[in-house]
Amino acid sequence: MIQKIEKKPIDALNPILDALPDNLKKIILSITPTILKDLEEIRIRQDRPLMVYSRGRDYFLCRNGRLTHHADNAYIVSQDDIRRTLELISSYSIYAFEEELRNGYITLQGGYRVGISGKVVLGKEGIISFRHITSFNIRIAREILNVANKVLPFIIENGQVLHTLILSPPQMGKTTLLRDICRQLSNGFPGFGGVKIGIVDERSEIAGCFQGIPQNDVGVRTDILDGCPKAIGIIMMIRSMSPNVIITDEIGKPEDVMAIEDALNAGIKIITSAHSSGLDDARRRPILKSLIDKNIFQRILVLGNSLGTGTLERVYDGIDWSILLDHPVR
């Protein structure tokens, strides 16, 4: 299996560098190129050391960009750094990211996601906003192409896409897999002509939209409803965009189930994912149990990390419960 990892060249980090105050930007640019090339996260926490995560481990950063494992030598992030970073990542427009802030992140140009934490203000309907933002986690997204190759034979039968549920614990690559499934189904590949895809991307994770434009390759026949709640978005997609397949991430609410059933009745295929370590675990969650027991999904894929992140552990036929893949594949 050939997986093509799109390494982001340093130029591609520009949207991230533009979102940093000058002093932090200088520090990041002073990091050795080998570490910078494989940068995965930049951690900015008020009154604590500036950190980066690269090549599977974290490092503190000194004022001159030198990497260290001693927090005492590291650059300490100031309140002004935090305030300036917030201004820059929001393009001086906090109001434009109200909904995203409630979900704890802002998406930058290039599809990079900035996680945010601090003091939350609660209202009757949940989180209203953040009062004191004190830390940022800038994640450098890596697009992995062709990761869906191992999965496609299971979810396409006689040229038809099957209703598919992907079960996976967090950080096992289910969104990456969904994205590549989307790209390949949308563009088509030898033996498959390509179909219209609708993505309902509630948390902007699949397409990584910036101002409505997908920053990740999700295919040429793909329409995206960005930041839209899944239940509403699925219905909107059915009514307005006539997709052949709807792809959405992390189902789990009762209204999601109703929307999925609507899509099924409209003859649209659904490919979605849920947090779960396996079929038994999923059956212990009432919402997933109802979906699984109704035999809605024709294929259930289980991801894990027995051979590394993104391993396809098992594939079930969701109708007769036969096991279609009983050994891990990566």
Binding site: S93, A96, Q211
Partner: peptide, 12 residues
């Protein structure tokens, strides 16, 4: 521009 369209400030 700000209240109804949430346009980013410079463009707004």
């Amino acid at each position: 521009e700000i209240v109804y369209y949430s346009t980013l400030l410079s463009q707004a």
